[in-house]
Amino acid sequence: MNWNTILFLLVPYAVVPLAVVASAYRLLYRPYTVSSLSSQILESRKLFWGSISFHWGLVLVLTGHLVALLLPRSITLWNAAPIRLYLLEATGLALGLWALAGGAVLAWRRYSDARVRAVTRPADVIVLVLLVVSMVTGVLTATLYSFGSSWFTAVFTPYLWSLATLRPRPELVADLPWLVKLHAFNFFLLAATFPFTRLVHIVTLPLGYLYRPWQLVIWARRPSRDTGARR
């Protein structure tokens, strides 16, 4: 068993089930602790410059990764024409830089604002460091190893599917540059911290808001029609 097997076979198989089980446990049995844990009330201006670009940048970049994983053919077909390849790569890089800029502002905010520092726990710092590593290695990969959108579907898509279908082939990623490996491995670290940190707020995206009634009225116990007898 070599290092590659440990990092890209054992670790994901240890970490992903842990993330799923621990998150489910936390949502079901410790729901009170599940929150975005915003500190906007303590500091709002820097958060504006950090949070919006960080979140939207990451959401869009992650969507790109997800498309490459689930619909690899669509990416391959899109990249068939060079102009479209350049467009996709430039967009991805720009979004990555946008997210990174936001992350930098957030890190600076956590460091420089006394009020925010007062509510910062070690877990917040760990998450932030992991996310910055993720964004930096991602942006560097996009810059140094062109063109990611092309080779991702040839390397990572089959690798991740091999993990998902329980026929793991870690050797697929064995020959990648260390920077790319760090980027991938860092994702598993993020998954490991997911249920134990504020990252868990990702699964609370309140889509129900789009269709629920505006007003919520709750009866302690819906009384029956013959309430006269209740007294």
């Binding site: 129900g208 009225v217 709750i218 009866w219 302690a220």
Partner: peptide, 25 residues
């Protein structure tokens, strides 16, 4: 967004369900 705040039908008191509240503010 989380649907955590509600009005009690019996007496009209408006309450936050802290277990459902996700802190979107």
């Amino acid at each position: 967004p989380s649907g955590a705040i509600y009005k009690r039908a019996e007496d009209g008191v408006v309450l936050v369900n802290d277990t459902k509240c996700r802190g979107w503010r």
